[in-house]
Simulated assay, not measured.
Amino acid sequence: MSLPGAPSVRGAVGWTLAQHGAFFASAWLVSWWAGAGRFGEWSQALALATVLAALITLRMEYAGQLDARAPRAASLFAAARRLALGLGLGVAALGIGAALAGAVPWWAGAGALAVAPLALVQVRAAAHAREGRVAAAAAVRALPAICMVPLQAAACVLQAPDAIAWSLPVAAWASLCVMRVPRHGAPRLRRLLRARWPFLRTEWLGLALNTAANHGQVLAVGLVAGDAAAGVIALGMRVAMLPTSLVGLAWADGLRAQVVASGSRDQAQAVVTAALRRMAGVSLPMHLAGAMAAWWLLPWLFPAQGRELAAVVLLLLPLGAVRMVASPVAFLPAWRGWLGWSLLGQCLLFTAAFGAALAGARWGAEGVAMAYAAAAVCVYMGYIVCALRAVRADT
């Protein structure tokens, strides 16, 4: 059984492939031209912006994506946009001020300046996904990465390595300018927060832990092991999780839309079971092919990182295989109201990520990859079991 809107899902995969292709083009260009250190700075700026952009909306856009009532969903999306713009500009002012004062490196100021537009992009993508337009959601998410490539190429031609980190905020704001953002009446933010607080509180904390595990780990590795090691982990994670990123997010958007629209528990259970079988059948061959290609291709494509990058990817690929199956169904415990179980999973991933980052001080990027893969595989297997129990439970 396939997910509904298969052409839309295929379009989403195409846009996601373009997004990651743009990232790898940037990684190759920056590493080849400016070295592993500069690439590490840019990777940390991207990680910082991604973490903060995910948090400042307080998960209002996710609540809107899952809300069955269209008027309330529109109010939640409008509230998310207000938070994204207001708090994002505040973060930008703090980041630039701290950079000017010498309290943080300039790449941190560049990352702070990109928070507001990336958060607004995130809200727009969630609105598209709620409508079942997963290809449009993926296109919106891909725009900032695609815009970065010509900016970095221009920096290379002009021999301006300091401009590399600043390509991130410029690309983020430029992508927002070409995007149609709907306008709604300003909702009463306090009333919406009060009405949705139990869901938002738990989901926001869960997202904070998850985003910190995925992207904050790069910042932690940079702190304990240096910019070059942070760049290797950022690039290695992106390569190892590429199959999940290409199809997992599109499947998750489509699966959420179908489960929310299900008329009965049995129908929702059938949808989820079929999706799990399909994802497992695709995940294994994709990651086996990735393992065979990684050792030979990566040192040639990214000589600045060399065999260390290939080893990191090989250690992380088993985690990618399990994560590809688990990620699209990870919303089910929260959808069923099992907020505590959902939060527990995020806490475990956070602990695994930052515990593994500490290994970087002694064993470098390879130690981080080995420790994180071993712990996170167990957590994601638990996610699959919990999701199956949640969809089978009575409401």
Rank of each mutant, 00 (worst) to 15 (best):
L3W: 05
L3F: 06
A12E: 05
W15I: 07
L17C: 11
L17I: 12
Q19C: 11
W28I: 12
L29T: 13
Q44F: 05
A45R: 06
A47I: 01
R59V: 09
Y62G: 01
R72L: 09
A74L: 12
S75K: 13
R81T: 06
A84V: 03
L85N: 00
L94Y: 01
G102K: 04
A103Y: 13
A103M: 11
L113T: 05
A116K: 00
L118I: 00
R130A: 03
G132F: 05
A135P: 01
A139Y: 02
R141S: 14
R141D: 10
R141K: 09
L143T: 00
L143P: 00
Q152K: 14
C156F: 14
V170W: 02
C177R: 07
V178W: 04
A195D: 14
F199E: 13
R201V: 08
L209W: 03
L209K: 02
G222K: 11
L223I: 08
A228T: 13
R238D: 07
R238P: 01
A240M: 08
L249M: 15
G254F: 00
L255K: 04
R256H: 04
V260W: 05
S262G: 08
S264C: 09
R265Y: 03
D266S: 14
A275W: 05
A275Y: 09
M286V: 13
M292R: 00
A293T: 08
Q305E: 14
G306E: 07
L319S: 03
G320R: 02
A352E: 01
A359R: 09
G360T: 07
R362V: 13
R362L: 07
A375T: 01
A376H: 05
D394H: 13
